[in-house]
Design a protein around this nucleic acid. Sequence first.
RNA 1: GCUCCGGUGGUGUAGACCGGCCAAGCAUAUGGGGCUCUCAAUCCCACGACCCGGGUCCAAAUCCCGGCCGGAGCACCA
Length: 502
Amino acid sequence: MTGIVQREFPELLSSRTKEEKKSLPDLPDVGNGGVVMRMAPSPSGPLHIGHARMAILNDEYLRRYGGKLILRIEDTNPSNIEPDAYQMIQDDLRWLGVNFTEVVIQSKRFELYYSEMRKLIEEGKAYVSTSPTEEFKSRKQQGLPVREREETPEENLERWERMLSGGYEKGEVYAVVKTDLNHPNPAIRDFIAFRIIDTPHPLEGDRYRIYPMMNFSVAIDDHFLGLTHVIRGKDHIANTEKQKYIFGYRGWKQPYYLHYGKVSIENTILKTTFIKKGIRNGDFTGWDDPRLGTLAAFRKRGFDPLAIRRYYVESGIGSVDTTFSWEIFYSFNRKIIDSRSPRHFFVSQPVSLKFDFEGTLNADIPLFPQASGNAEKGSRRYKVGKGSIMISSQDYAKLNGELVRLKDLGYFKVESSRIEYLGESINEDVQKWNPNRPLGKVPIIHWLSGNEVPFRVVKPDGTVDSGFVENDALNYIGMVHQFERYGYVNVLNEREGYFTHP
RNA sequence: GCUCCGGUGGUGUAGACCGGCCAAGCAUAUGGGGCUCUCAAUCCCACGACCCGGGUCCAAAUCCCGGCCGGAGCACCA
């Protein structure tokens, strides 16, 4: 039945699927002013493909509802900051096409955090402890308070002032927000909000010693920045619970929280500390090394950011853990770049065959296939005569002794170290050499002859394919090419390209 | 161990909150075919899944219970 419908009335089905085109579910409680959302990376390095999910999801909703999208850089742990990251993150987001409307840097907001903490202490919702942290933790496990939790706001305030004015050493004191010591999930019970750090901050130097913990600064900022909706990974579910206590104490309206599942990305290096070390000791060429999952590497491999967007929109905001599918991602990207990628021949691991031919053959090879809609953009023209013709060793292994068609040149036969021209179209010589195989099935391969320059392609696993490419390819440096029967390659300069995908 | 969350074709997902229109949609991969002087793109066809066991119900992928499997949190990281 459906088969008949598809055959007889395809328009019925296709129009229907267009209306149901996939998109993200609507957000609840969106007012007239749209949404206010935020992206909150820490500046430990540039963004990678995992961060892109957070950025794309937020940006998609901003596009749908309007409003504000704040880039909030969470630099409250000075020992884990890469100073260049403040800029790299913004570059990465712009490349992705994510339109953040303002930038907020947490290290500029310490005074706000201090004054809010003071209010909580005054209200008896927070305390300052000098008890050993082991004791703090073990008593929490048992649902018991440390001594200072029971003391008056005045006593705690006094310790808070002393903490701020440098009256304690690192590790000696910490400030805590109360939650519920009997919370069934021990992870939610009282959490540390401030601690002393003596490592200088890349932006602030040694101006501050008292650093907020993420759960504190996030709650304060989410409120004061007026967030309506928060989209974050589900690894933050417990953090959200903790932060809600602060909202409750201050009587603030909570944003609407949405937690998406973890994306694991196989065969890809994402850990910034590992990458940083690798760059320092020369294992990686930089943040854009093709083996890395950074957006910088994606850019250099020639991916279109739209493919990343489509991929994550299709993945949705489910809380199920997912595995990034390179296969599907490649397919999305291929569809976007195919029609604009000029075609060239790249012969890797070449075999050079002797070509004894009296005369000249003319090759006129379209730069774009006719179906691309770019056919009028021209072709590459070569003259081929006596000398040699190069084909890949992979093709050679299969074709020695066979009839072959060199693309846009003619029929040839390959015999040991020689190649012989049989004609442009089917003739007696061709028939004779190819007695049994149907002529429509003769393999068509790419080739080079006197029109080549040495070229290398760096693959995503770090290995290199060496060979030769048409010299015409060098007229299109900085573009993704399709090297026919090989794959897509971002041609970076006259010697080298990065492999995009098959 | 404790506290949460989740398990749909080979892969990525939609549907689940508010049971029926789901003998389960889309994409990708694979196989076949059309177009094409690329193993690309494009078009058509085919293939293939509700973790297991109970229960509720006229009716369960969807609700309940148990099991198994997977993930997250339990930091003076974010």
